[in-house]
Design a protein around this nucleic acid. Sequence first.
DNA 1: CTGAAAGCGCTTACAG
DNA 2: CTGAAAGCGCTTACAG
Lengths: 334, 334
Amino acid sequence: MNGRPVTIQDVAREAGVSTATVSRTLSKPSVVAKPTRQAVMRAVQKTGYQVNHLARNLRRQRTGSVIALAPNLANPFFSQILAGMSAVLSARNYGLLIADTQMGPDPDERLRRYLASGMADGLVLFDGGLSPAALDVPGRPPVVAACEWLATDLPSIRVDNAHGAELAVAHLAELGHRRIGHVTGPRSNVLARTRKQGWREAMARRGLEARDAWVFEGDFSMDSGALAAERWAAASDRPTALFFASDEMAVGFLGALRRNGAQAPRDVSVVGFDNIEVCAHLSPALTTIRQPRTLIGERAAGLLLDLIGGGGGEGFAGLVEVELVVRDSTAPPA
Amino acid sequence: MNGRPVTIQDVAREAGVSTATVSRTLSKPSVVAKPTRQAVMRAVQKTGYQVNHLARNLRRQRTGSVIALAPNLANPFFSQILAGMSAVLSARNYGLLIADTQMGPDPDERLRRYLASGMADGLVLFDGGLSPAALDVPGRPPVVAACEWLATDLPSIRVDNAHGAELAVAHLAELGHRRIGHVTGPRSNVLARTRKQGWREAMARRGLEARDAWVFEGDFSMDSGALAAERWAAASDRPTALFFASDEMAVGFLGALRRNGAQAPRDVSVVGFDNIEVCAHLSPALTTIRQPRTLIGERAAGLLLDLIGGGGGEGFAGLVEVELVVRDSTAPPA
DNA sequence: CTGAAAGCGCTTACAG
DNA sequence: CTGAAAGCGCTTACAG
């Protein structure tokens, strides 16, 4: 009950066995004789022994943690993903460290340091803006790309963004829209590019024009969505429907639209991407493409653990599916 | 360049000194002669040596990590707080582990395990629902309570919730409202209770009645806010203004209100709590009480590091201030 | 089935 | 100012 933590030595003394036997009882009980095992377990109980992970991991040459590296931890988008990761990892007794790539001056350098530091057995990367060269660290642990991926052959969990765009455009086209525009994510973002490309292809597939004038550049943020509303309102050649690369932008758009006296879906139909919680509570409630974020976190953690365990990550291949959620922000064109 | 990580031995050999000297050069350079120091630094450069934290920490009898323990990691409320913590911690070379209390069957037991595990040098607790008894672990590391606090004398970072309620009621009263109601957080939540109590006192201070009929029970969620809208609309004795214990509930309320053909602030004035990002983009934009979440994270991390370093946490006492942000969801009563 | 011993990679009194 | 040595708390071949 005093300050000094209980060690395996204390347990060994208490049980009248060697530390080796205590260790075995705890990690491979099957090789220990039953009476010995019971004596050890009793001593563990009595002393309140808890393994020292530092020592165990140093000896086992692993850290027992993985790092999730996100471009912006303050972005709520990640919270559900982290929850999914945490669930899988803690069930397997791994710790989850989180870090932000964009906090210092040189994000690439940060990644490189994390990879070289030996602080974790693996890393899940959520920042598609980093340079693939930053991965070129000798002896680095496994890395999984999630959500946004680098232009490399990194094992990855990928969402079917192209299909999401297809679902959005299909929904709008079925309602009768032919002038369907797109509000993009940041230009440098791979995910944003895939959604834009998906929009273009979905339009082409239907013989619909995808005019440059119908593309509004955003950066995923609500503010950029509000800006898009201004530009949309001011445009002469105006789409009757818009597919947004993120819900946040669609939310900003709807707010600004209303402040300007316009309204969805009367004046323009709106489809978002993500299905964040607020979608259902807006008025009009936002039609969107649902991304299963908890699942993404679970799959990313699962894949990483598989790689750490020496697996090839098979069984984790394949895209994470998205689905259309129809609400009230879409209607036939006026 | 091969697989084996570079150790302090390799650097020592390269520099022609002992490992002790390499270690000193890295952690207390002032005690090493300049030429020696330079030779070591050159060797570090050449070999690409990175300290093994596991070994260093085992030797130093610390872990170099702290744990943030939240009731629900999927709640975006925490993302900004975690970002604030991460900023402070990584500047001081501490890792941030995150874990969820509510994932297993017994949250108290989870907390106890984390405290006894020696996995971290300290812990920040965001779950006010846990039993103080769970803290009763011999030799446990320092714990900081943040956001929601237990009924103990734990060092804590606390937001001035009572003052937030006062600001909200003052604003509404100045607009001329006398029938000001409150939508609560979950009954068991300390933070929710403080806000409710604050509302009650702010009303009393003005000689305003705080009728039970004007209290609508919620749980912080958007859904519960939407439910409050139904109940508000159906009530015979209806407040003309509502102070919500969370923005999320206010968002849900506004959406449901509109779907029922009513509108804020025409039919009812609405004040939220938190200032989440969407507030500014709603229509009407939501008047609310701003909570500086990044600051909360920074302060919590700072306080914990101080305690870990043997400080008494003085200088971190005092409440985190909140402020009123007036937007368009409040107006004089009709 | 069990124990003695080596060793994971570091840091730090201690001695010189 | 520097080095030899002990030791942080474990695990695991190895020998018996």
